[in-house]
Design a protein around this nucleic acid. Structure first.
Length: 433
RNA sequence: GUGGCUGUAGAUCAGUGGUAGAUCCCUUGAUUGUGGUUCAAGUUGUCGCGGGUUCAAAUCCCGUCAGCCACCCCA
């Protein structure tokens, strides 16, 4: 016997019973994003590997270990390019923004995306190799204002609420400008220099690669050392602090609840100023259902904007993880699966009526009603079972008696009530209900 | 990439060396034109895969793959 093939590790099938929930999530998300002035953009699922290396940072885990590179004879033959499945949505959008010169036409581009992302990680709860994100990016010369940061966070919160997620926490922090960030890194390294050797190998590693990571380390000893540094907002320049305070004012005026967490850092190199994370307790180790931040330098870093004016183009964005939102909703006891429903199922008495039933089904569909039938005229019992499984609201019975009278029997499957009507009346009767 | 736990029917799981099991699902039937409830009967299997120990392995040992959870990292 032929061996059965399985899906690749870390992927999952979204089956028909689950898909309607995905669809409502997507449409609610689109609705909310449209209210805030965002327009959908679709970029390829794979890009040149260099794009991710330059944007996320060579040293980040995502680029170093988790990038799924595309290998094919055709690709390898073209030695100039190496391709990778996108691990996140921001870099491709910035690439598209630059390539299509969107900044020429728009002072502020508000873009959103929905789609699969790919990371070659070891799967666990809330972590897949193919997962789905819904995210938004505001990019442009007009994207520098702190109220945009506030609006963005409010949008993410609003979307989660519209999905029915409750009890999540919004944490925000500011990394300051890229100069602030560089100074902060230097200061941190200097502070930790003498103590780092007492800490675990992981911590030493992070010290070398990306000091900021130490701030939200789970290692207890490391946490203690960080706490003793008493960081707060001391690393911010006056301008950076002013910006951060303006963001907070914006959030306050919109009534968005949040907490400031000076240990919050994001793993991707491109973040500056505002960073935020929305977490949901009870999801296990992977408790972030959404996160984002500002990345002002990235557009120029990827060759866009006017290179004579440094930092001209501002940008901020966030992404929500759809699978994690689903986990949170399940955790709350919400139903995320749905059975099927159709308007009418046509039951036929014998093979002689199959043609007539075929036409009746067509007529129902023409009238905008979902309809199906049994093509092989099985026993009535079987056909009713079938109708039940399809979630039919009504059964239309077409047998010898009905044909003789030129009518059809309509049975309400919920109440069991049944009556005989002409075909047109029958269709009208279920249209109304 | 590292560690822990787990792989038995379509699903959830029991079975610790001696004939492969339960429940749900599914199939059939309970006066031949009526489902969702009930009742009766029936079908489900390379016991994840490969090797080893043994008269005998789902069970013990080794390897491997996969799933889950945690580290790391992140949505």
């Amino acid at each position: 016997m032929a061996t059965k093939l399985n899906n690749p590790r870390g992927t999952s099938d979204i089956l028909p019973d689950e898909i309607s929930f995905w669809q409502t999530l997507e449409s609610k998300g689109r609705q909310m994003l449209t209210l805030y002035g965002y327009r959908e953009i679709r970029t390829p699922v794979f890009e040149e590997t260099a794009l991710f290396k330059r944007s996320l940072g060579e040293s980040t885990e995502v680029v170093n270990k988790q990038l799924l590179e595309v290998k094919s004879q055709r690709v390898d033959a073209d030695e100039a390019s190496s391709l990778a499945l996108r691990p996140e949505g921001t870099a491709p959008i910035v690439r598209a923004y630059n390539q299509n010169d969107l900044g020429r036409e728009e002072y502020l581009s508000k873009l959103f995306y929905i789609g699969p992302m790919f990371r070659g990680e070891r799967p666990q709860k809330g972590r897949l190799r193919q997962f789905h994100q819904i995210g938004a990016e505001a990019i442009g010369r007009g994207a520098h204002h702190p109220l945009i940061d506030a609006e963005m966070i409010a949008l993410a919160v609003g979307m989660l609420k519209s999905f029915g997620v409750e009890g999540f926490r919004v944490k925000i922090n500011s990394l300051g400008s890229s100069e602030d960030k560089a100074n902060f890194a230097q200061w941190l390294r200097a502070q930790l220099k003498d103590r780092i050797n007492h800490l675990s190998d992981d911590c030493k590693n992070q010290y070398e690669r990306n000091v900021f990571r130490l701030l939200d380390s789970k290692d207890k000893d490391c946490q203690a050392v960080i706490r003793s540094l008493n960081i707060g907002t001391a690393h911010l320049s006056s301008k950076g602090l002013e910006y951060f305070n303006a963001v907070r004012c914006g959030l306050d005026s919109l009534g968005v609840a949040y907490e400031v967490s000076s240990n919050l850092v994001r793993g991707l190199d491109y973040y500056t100023h505002t960073v935020f994370e929305i977490s949901y307790e009870g999801l296990g180790a992977q408790d972030a259902i959404g996160a984002g931040g500002r990345y002002n330098g990235l557009i120029e870093q990827l060759g866009g904007g006017d290179r004579r004016v440094e930092g001209e183009i501002g940008a901020i964005g966030f992404a929500l993880g759809i699978e994690r939102i689903l986990l949170a909703l399940e955790e709350q006891g919400k139903q995320v699966k749905a059975g099927r429903v159709i308007d009418a199922f046509v039951v036929t008495g014998s093979h002689a009526q199959v043609d007539a039933a075929f036409l009746l089904v067509d007529k129902l569909r023409q009238a905008g009603l979902s309809a199906d039938m049994d093509y092989s005229a099985r026993a009535f019992k079987k056909q009713f079972e079938h109708a039940n499984k399809l979630g039919a609201r009504f059964a239309f019975i077409l047998g010898d008696e009905e044909i003789k009278k030129g009518q059809v029997s309509v049975k309400n499957m919920a109440t069991g009530e049944q009556r005989s009507l002409s075909i047109d009346e029958a269709i009208k009767s279920i249209e109304r209900s």
